[in-house]
C-alpha cells in the first residue's frame, strides 16, 4: 500500500545509518498525532450531533415555542416549560456574579498593583485552591454549613435555598475572574502607569483611572467566562438549591433568595436519575442539555473574541 511512496522517499542522499522506512515512519507518527488533535473536533461534533438527535425527537412532540416560553415544568404531567429552570439559572448567575465580580476584580487589582512578592506568593496559590475544590464539596458546604449559618443570623431561608448555593458558586468562580483579570492588568504596559505618575496622579488614581480602564476588555472577558461557568455549575445547585422548578416572583424580589429553585443543570440530573420517566421526559433532558451547551458555548466564544481584541491593542 505504501510501497510506492516509500521508494520515492529513499531516492535522496542517505546520511543516516537506517534511512529507508524512516520517512514512512515519520509520516505515520505525523498522522497518528494529527488524529489525536482532530479527536477534539470529534468531541465537539459528537456533543452537537448526539444532543441534537434526541432534542429533535423532543421538539417534534413538544412545540419549541411552548418549550422556550412555558412557565411550568412538570414531567409527571408532560408539561415542559423552560422558563422556571431558566429562572433558577438566572438567579444563581446573578447572585454569584454580585459576589464574584467585585471580589475577583478587587483581588486582581490587589495582586497586580499592590501586593508585595511575599503576599502574592501566598494569595495567588490560595485563590487557585478555591478553583481546585470539587464542586460537590462546595455543595455540601452550602447545605450543611452555610444554610444553617444563614438561618442562625435570622434570614428566613428554607433548607434548600438558592442563596447559599449561589454564595458558594460565587466563591468558586472568584479565581476565574481574578486570575484572568490580573493577566489583563499585568499586560497593561508600565509606560501607561508612568505617564499617570508623571502627571502627578497617586497610585489609587493610576490604578482606577489608568490600569483598570486599559484592562477593561480583559476584565470583561473574564466576567463572561465566569458567568458561563456559573450557568453550567451543577453539583452545588443539585446538592443545595432544591429540586422544585419555580418561576421568579417579581412582586417580592427579596423573597426569591430564600426559596429553593431548580436551575437547568439540576433539572438534568434529576430527570436522569428519576426512577420512572416517560420517553418524552427523558428526551427533554437532551433539549435542556443542548440549550445549556449553546448558551455556554456562545458565551465562551464571546469571551474569546473580546480577549483576542484586547491582546491586539498592546502588541
Amino acid at each position: 500500500m505504501r510501497d510506492n511512496t516509500m521508494s520515492t522517499e529513499t531516492t535522496g542522499p542517505d546520511i543516516t545509518s537506517r534511512p529507508s522506512g524512516r520517512a514512512a515512519r515519520e509520516r505515520m507518527y505525523r498522522y497518528v498525532l494529527l488524529l489525536c488533535a482532530a479527536a477534539s473536533i470529534l468531541v465537539t461534533v459528537s456533543i452537537v450531533v448526539l444532543l441534537a438527535r434526541d432534542a429533535v425527537t423532543f421538539f417534534t412532540l413538544v412545540n419549541p415555542v411552548d418549550f422556550f416560553t412555558g412557565t411550568e415544568f412538570l414531567i409527571s404531567r408532560n408539561v415542559y416549560g423552560l422558563l422556571p429552570l431558566l429562572s433558577g439559572t438566572l438567579l444563581v448567575t446573578v447572585i454569584s456574579a454580585v459576589i464574584a465580580l467585585p471580589t475577583g476584580v478587587a483581588a486582581a487589582v490587589y495582586l497586580s498593583e499592590y501586593a508585595s512578592d511575599q503576599m502574592r506568593s501566598v494569595l495567588k496559590p490560595g485563590l487557585e485552591i478555591l478553583a481546585g475544590i470539587p464542586t460537590v464539596v462546595y455543595g455540601i458546604f452550602a447545605l450543611v454549613y452555610v444554610t444553617p449559618f444563614l438561618q442562625a443570623i435570622g434570614l428566613p431561608v428554607n433548607t434548600f435555598n438558592i442563596l447559599s448555593a449561589s454564595i458558594m458558586v460565587g466563591i468558586m468562580i472568584i479565581p476565574m475572574v481574578s486570575s484572568l483579570s490580573e493577566d489583563a492588568m499585568s499586560a497593561v504596559p508600565d509606560s501607561l502607569r508612568r505617564a499617570g505618575y508623571g502627571m502627578g496622579a497617586t497610585k489609587f488614581e493610576v490604578t482606577t483611572g489608568v490600569v483598570v480602564p486599559a484592562a477593561a476588555s480583559g476584565i470583561f472577558s473574564s466576567f463572561i467566562l465566569a458567568l458561563s461557568r456559573a450557568i453550567g455549575e451543577t453539583m452545588i445547585v443539585v446538592v443545595a438549591a432544591g429540586s422544585r422548578p419555580r418561576m421568579l416572583n417579581l412582586s417580592d424580589p427579596l423573597a426569591n433568595l430564600f426559596q429553593g429553585y431548580q436551575p437547568m443543570t439540576a433539572a438534568m440530573v434529576q430527570i436522569n436519575s428519576a426512577d420512572s420517566v416517560s420517553q418524552l421526559g427523558f428526551t427533554s433532558l437532551f433539549a435542556i442539555g443542548l440549550t445549556l451547551f449553546v448558551i455556554t458555548f456562545l458565551l465562551n466564544l464571546l469571551s474569546n473574541r473580546i480577549a483576542a481584541r484586547y491582546r491586539e491593542e498592546y502588541e
Partner: peptide, 11 residues
C-alpha cells in the same frame, strides 16, 4: 479546544 475547556461538566 479552548471552547471545550469551558463546556459544563454535566454536558
Amino acid at each position: 479546544i479552548g471552547n471545550l475547556a469551558g463546556v459544563p461538566s454535566v454536558v
